[in-house]
């Protein structure tokens, strides 16, 4: 079955991102397809490559990236939510005159249309949030 996942909360703040990761990982292991994972609102914080948690804690960003590497996942960060929270890729840095980027290379920044498309193209949309 084809699933789309929406995440509204940031890492290390709310269990939503852990629940979403474990659901996504389990679905993939069971042979389901994840059409897209869409990070919305504070969820965009899941995509910063600059995260450095203590060594004995889970690395939430790398965990998503590793899953994306293994299963060729499409990890999409909402552009409007990202701009507000300082999540920047090369295109956004140039467009908005910023001097740095922080998006992890396994994530990409795009628009809300990507969430709508994921909902339309998938058989189930599963939302994780506060």
């Amino acid at each position: 079955m084809k699933f789309a996942i929406q995440i509204n909360e940031g890492p290390y703040q709310h269990q939503a991102t852990d629940s979403a990761y474990l659901f996504t990982k389990t679905a993939l292991e069971k042979g389901h397809e994840i059409f897209r994972v869409f990070f919305y609102h504070d969820g965009v914080g899941n995509g910063t490559r600059l995260t450095t948690p203590p060594q004995d804690d889970r690395h939430i960003v790398n965990r998503w990236a590793d899953l994306a590497e293994k299963y060729d996942l499409d990890l999409v960060v909402c552009v409007a939510a990202a701009q507000r929270r300082g999540m920047v890729d090369a295109g956004e840095a140039e467009r908005n005159g910023k001097d740095a980027t922080n998006i992890h290379p396994k994530f990409r920044i795009s628009g809300l249309g990507q969430l709508i498309e994921a909902a339309v193209q998938s058989e189930r949309l599963v939302v994780f949030g506060d």
Partner: peptide
């Protein structure tokens, strides 16, 4: 995951 697939849609009371 099985429940999400079994039912026609998933409604999140977030």
């Amino acid at each position: 995951v099985d429940l999400a697939a079994e039912y026609d849609k998933v409604v999140a009371w977030v």
